[in-house]
Amino acid sequence: MIPTQSTASAVWLVAEREIGSKLRSKAFMISTGILLLVALAGVLIGGFASKTSTPDAVAATSQTASVVRALPNVTVTEVGDRAEAEKLVLDEKVTAAVLPADDDPTGVVILAKKDAPSSLVMGLSQSPQVEILQPATTNSLLRYLVAIGFGVVFLMAASTFGATIAQSVVEEKQTRVVELLISAIPTRVLLAGKVLGNTVLAMAQILLLAAIAVVGLIVTGQNEVLAGLGAPVLWFAVFFLFGFILLASLYSAAAAMVSRQEDIGSTTMPLMMLVMAPYFLVIFFNDNPVVMTVLSYVPFSAPVGMPVRLFVGEAQWWEPLVSLVILLASCVGAILIGAKIYENSLLRMGARVKLVEALRG
């Protein structure tokens, strides 16, 4: 057995090799740059689109000014009488005028040159009183967008770096490089280094995306959304870290069971389904509290499900802690199983190694 210091050094040496090979890859750097630009564009476009439009300039007398000022997105120009209001409307200095009208049920009349602003008409229309028994904690569209955001980031990072690990393992087997590597370091050290290196890269990408999202929200003036996303984003980073380690261990083990690049899909497809299924479930059932509660405790969907529930205020303070404990236990189990499969399959060339054989050794 090699000393602990030497083991740590060997793990980091393998991790550095994984990180360096990716950073030297033009394809990886270009794809990362495109991903960051797309994320920034998405945040900016969504932010500017959600900002309030230019306020409507509306003329009003002293009797109607208080009513008009209560409407959203309106600036009021107070006038003395109807003639002055008509002149402002005809000169297009205001979009409309609101004057008192005793013969109208609403008590007011709207003057417009051609078309009255629909928002003004709706705001002054009489509507029945509405009582909401179960008020929504957040805007449904915003909830959907947040679910998509967390889901896309997790799906892309997990699938991209999972595939990278799988290709690296098979490439080393196919070229027989792995025989030289494990003659110098233990098999589990090689596995740990691969997982560590790709985890560092994945977390760096996640942190860059988070920074871009923060900058985009600040630029577009969405401070309230940013304040609400703070804690969920931190929890997402924590859940993603351990969720990715779980997946990386399983991807490495699955790839070790084959000897050709063409066969990777046969062993990694189940893992891809485990990543994609929770993503689609969170997207489709983001407004279903029961389904979201279940998904926030399932290890493969917790990195997306729990942050979404935290953002909308449906999760109690202790729930992410319990979910994280479940994820950590699953992560330990995946590492132990993955290491056993990896160790028993790495030097077996030729036909695909069956799962039962890989577990038995």
Rank of each mutant, 00 (worst) to 15 (best):
A315N: 03
I212K: 00
M292W: 09
W317D: 05
G243K: 09
A210H: 01
L226P: 08
S259E: 01
A211F: 11
A237H: 00
G216K: 03
A302I: 07
A253N: 11
E314T: 15
A202T: 13
Q261T: 14
I283T: 10
V291H: 03
I218P: 00
D263W: 08
P299S: 02
F285V: 01
L229W: 02
L196G: 10
Y279H: 07
S249F: 15
N286D: 12
M269Y: 08
T267S: 12
W235V: 14
G230W: 04
A253I: 12
V308D: 03
P232E: 03
F236G: 04
S296D: 11
L209G: 05
F280N: 08
G197W: 05
E314N: 14
A253L: 11
A277F: 15
V238S: 09
L207W: 07
V233G: 02
V294C: 02
S296A: 13
L281W: 05
A213D: 04
G305P: 15
F240L: 14
V275Q: 11
W317P: 12
G221N: 12
L226I: 04
A277G: 06
V312Y: 09
G221Q: 11
W235G: 13
A248K: 02
Q316V: 08
M276V: 15
S301G: 12
L207R: 01
V258I: 08
L247V: 12
V200Q: 12
Q222A: 14
